[in-house]
Design a protein around this nucleic acid. Structure first.
Lengths: 149, 149
DNA sequence: GGTTAATAAATAGGTAGCCTAACTAATTAA
DNA sequence: TTAATTAGTTAGGCTACCTATTTATTAACC
């Protein structure tokens, strides 16, 4: 096993901490109608190809937060007519969360705004380096997912 | 200017969002005596070589948060005897925040714990890829810093 | 079929991590 | 000397979670 240089460890840690504060800057740039956490939850429901319905439990697993956290967020979004709760016919303990038409439109809008603000960064880094960053971020996420199981 | 592929943009966004939730996992692993934000502030005061004193304004600039945010955090840390407030003799409006001996010891401990938990990730990614990630994280941070000025 | 155990979601109360508005005191500028 | 600016603090509020508990439903067991 390769010995890790202590100085590198420290610089990695510093970069990690600073990088994770980056959403701060991003947040200040966008005229968001959605709180960050709401945007993420709606994006998950939106899916890649077509909207899907997920239970509170499923959402809590994907988001890595507890059910009460999801419940509260869903309640707010339901109040704003962005999602609706459906009873799951095959298990009446569970409820399914579904995007409304309004929710679909809003998350589309917000996605485009987010993507626009990302473009500046990608141009700054260059496309190849951005792809590398994407790959490394995905692998890091995989590492933590693997650690949990 | 190179045209950015829309599908790549989306995968970048997804990786960005997931990666920024990574501290979640990290947090659950460490038996921290310090809140994350406190750890960061103490680390800054600790410096790379020897502890330094910084004003609330300086800390707020480094952390990218408002002064009241720093004030509240410093107050908590002062109550726990981890920092002390000093009047700045060259500008009596300003106060300097200084680590106590106890603060120095605690941040040393917590740093080692944090570094230990980072080692698993670095081994997973490999040292070369970890260095690449560090570089890209630093460049991203630079991009946002540059955008602010 | 009846009872107990497990599970899904919701409710209530709390912490962490910020923000803005307003205020006080000190410093600088006019 | 007065006015403007600056540094820090206080108070109230929002976002984003958490744990403990409760209620209703389902699964397991006898």
């Amino acid at each position: 096993m390769e010995k890790i240089d202590q100085a590198f460890l420290k610089s990695f840690m510093k970069a990690w901490i600073q990088f994770h504060r980056a959403p701060h800057q991003l947040k200040k740039r966008a005229d968001d109608c959605l709180k960050p956490s709401a945007f993420i939850l709606l994006s998950i429901l939106h899916g890649e190809e077509e909207p899907k319905m997920l239970s509170v439990s499923e959402l809590s697993k994907i988001l890595q937060v507890t059910s009460p956290t999801v419940t509260q967020l869903v309640t707010q979004l339901e109040n704003n007519n962005l999602v609706e709760r459906k009873i799951n016919p095959s298990d009446r303990r569970a409820i399914l969360v579904k995007l409304t038409e309004q929710g679909i439109q809003l998350v589309d809008q917000q996605r485009n705004k987010f993507l626009d603000s990302m473009k500046g960064l990608i141009e700054y880094l260059g496309v190849d380096e951005s792809k590398k960053l994407t790959e490394l971020m995905n692998r890091t996420v995989q590492y933590f997912q693997q650690q949990r199981s």
